[in-house]
Design a protein around this nucleic acid. Structure first.
Length: 254
DNA sequence: ATGGTAGCGCTGCTA
């Protein structure tokens, strides 16, 4: 099977790009983040025409996540289990069973700055994700947790670590939160290659000033079947690209 | 230390 994750930075702006990318690569499942639209405004037709189903979790024009699948979508969960209390009711998490694999599409809060309340929100959000995965017992199942984690797990995941020392995405507590997810029994599939997945629009992306923020965490049983995990940088060599590149995961299972 | 771009929806917020 093939899975993908992509922060598209507005699905309405990027729908033609996403549809042609789906048509070219034909993954079984594509997880989307930052769709930035209400569910009724999501351009599902172009995706359905290609033989995919969509399950959406959007709210206004912020955040927004989705799962696109051609191997079925069952047991759909939107947000965290339990009461939807602000700000944890933001549209940042959707999960579903696709072709026998439990798939999560996550958009972790940015954090903004180390002294911003949003940074604490980010840490607590990651802890809630850990609780969600732990209570679900997903690590013993075939589970894939993908998305934009807004954390560069190591200094090797940053073009210039010194520059990011006092910023979010690279702080020790954020990295600990990612480690805590892995300790549940997940493997960070991009951890060996450290290929970047995000480039700031405001700086020279052509000089590869990027970060690895989009992760694919595979449960131990699923990770045993993984053949490759690659970043498709070609998807950014278009007019008006997303600031993120899609990540493609291939497993040996049918 | 700062500024640079993009998207949304309407003027500033978020990233």
């Amino acid at each position: 099977m093939r899975f993908a994750t992509w922060n598209v930075n507005s699905i309405r702006t990027r729908i033609d790009l996403v549809a042609s990318w789906l048509d070219t690569h034909r993954p079984d499942v594509l997880c989307l983040q930052e769709t930035k639209c209400r569910d009724e405004d999501f351009p599902v037709e172009a995706i359905h025409r290609l033989g995919y189903e969509t399950v959406l979790h959007g709210h206004d024009h912020w955040n927004g996540v989705a799962i696109v699948s051609r191997v079925g979508v069952e047991d759909v969960r939107r947000g965290f289990t339990g009461p939807q209390v602000a700000p944890f009711d933001e549209a940042r998490l959707i999960a579903a069973r696709c072709g026998g694999v439990d798939v999560y599409s996550a958009y972790v809060p940015n954090g903004r700055a180390l002294d911003d309340p949003h940074y604490l929100y980010k840490l607590v959000w990651l802890e809630r994700l850990r609780a969600e995965l732990m209570l679900r017992g997903g690590s013993e199942d075939e589970t894939l947790v993908t998305g934009d984690f807004n954390v560069a797990p190591t200094d090797e995941d940053i073009y210039d670590p010194r520059r990011w020392r006092r910023r979010t995405h690279a702080s020790a507590p954020e990295r600990s939160a990612i480690s805590a997810l892995l300790e549940l029994g997940f493997v960070d599939l991009g951890a060996e290659d450290h290929h970047f997945t995000w480039w700031n629009y405001r700086t020279a992306a052509e000089r590869n000033m990027g970060l690895r923020l989009d992760l694919a965490l595979a449960s131990t049983p699923l990770s045993a079947t993984v053949e490759s995990c690659v970043v498709d940088v070609a998807a950014r060599r278009v007019e008006r690209p997303s600031d993120h590149a899609p990540v493609l995961i291939t497993t040996s299972s049918e």
